[in-house]
């Protein structure tokens, strides 16, 4: 969809009322996801602050804080004067349109199937890693969590995230699980780290990797498995939510 031709339904999906606390962070994430998903086209004017705050069901001051964060991320531009207002800026990333299309064309069923398989593979890999990882494997995993923490670009985050899960399967000493983890990362890695539309917010992803690794280090396979399943499930749930928002548009 082009910048000016966003449907009323897309607008509705982008500005659906928030029921999760109305924090500025949540508002900013919702709007940046809408931009990533193309629900808000490049150059499209946002409603007035009062109108938008009312639609999202948040205080105007909260909305202003969110818009300010989006401005500093380059996702919103504000122009003064006649014809002024706030405008969405789509991240300049050639892969974004392709990712939106993939996300729109996948079905909820397919996403659920990918999630089921990924939880089975990554969860068992974590369980085995807790039993079999040697100190050298733990050092590699530590490095990969730090790499994710320090990564700023979506591509670097995706690579560090993917490598962590692949290395976890390798630390479980299973070639088969490792191969399947590699295939799954190739299938959904990019979708999980869409520019300005991350399925699991970066700081949470880092914290969850640390939690998994702590359980692996303790040799607590069940905890490692449960933490991994939760982590993977959360990402897939978010992708399903993205898909539904696109499907409604």
């Amino acid at each position: 969809m082009d910048g000016n031709g966003v449907s009323g339904a897309a607008r509705h999906a982008a500005f659906a009322p928030l029921d999760d606390g109305g924090r500025a962070e949540v508002v900013a994430r919702r709007l940046s996801e809408a931009i990533a998903l193309g629900l808000l086209g490049d150059g499209e004017q946002l409603p007035s602050e009062a109108e938008l705050a009312a639609q999202l069901n948040v205080a105007t001051v909260t909305l202003r804080e969110a818009l300010s964060a989006l401005r500093s991320d380059g996702l919103v531009q504000t122009r003064r004067g006649r014809g002024g207002g706030s405008f969405a800026r789509s991240p300049a990333d050639a892969s974004l349109e392709r990712l939106r299309r993939t996300l729109r064309e996948l079905t909820v069923h397919e996403l659920r199937e990918i999630g089921d398989q990924h939880r089975a593979i990554a969860g068992t890999a974590a369980l085995l890693a807790a039993e079999r990882a040697a100190s050298e494997d733990l050092r590699t995993l530590d490095t990969l969590v730090d790499q994710l923490a320090g990564a700023g670009e979506p591509g670097d985050r995706r690579r560090a995230d993917g490598r962590f899960h692949i290395e976890l399967a390798a630390a479980g000493q299973s070639s088969r699980l490792t191969r399947q983890e590699i295939a799954l990362q190739a299938e959904i890695g990019e979708l999980l780290w869409m520019p300005s539309g991350e399925a699991v917010p970066h700081p949470d992803a880092v914290a969850e990797h640390r939690e998994i690794l702590a359980a692996v280090r303790l040799g607590d396979g069940q905890r490692a498995r449960v933490a991994t399943e939760r982590h993977i499930g959360r990402g897939i749930d978010q992708l399903i939510d993205f898909h539904l928002r696109l499907a409604r548009a």
Binding site: I166, A169, A170, Q173, S174, S175, T178, R179, I182
Partner: peptide, 12 residues
């Protein structure tokens, strides 16, 4: 090793 050689052969 032994290790999972995922960048080369995909074998143990």
């Amino acid at each position: 090793g032994p290790y999972v050689d995922y960048s080369g052969t995909d074998e143990y």
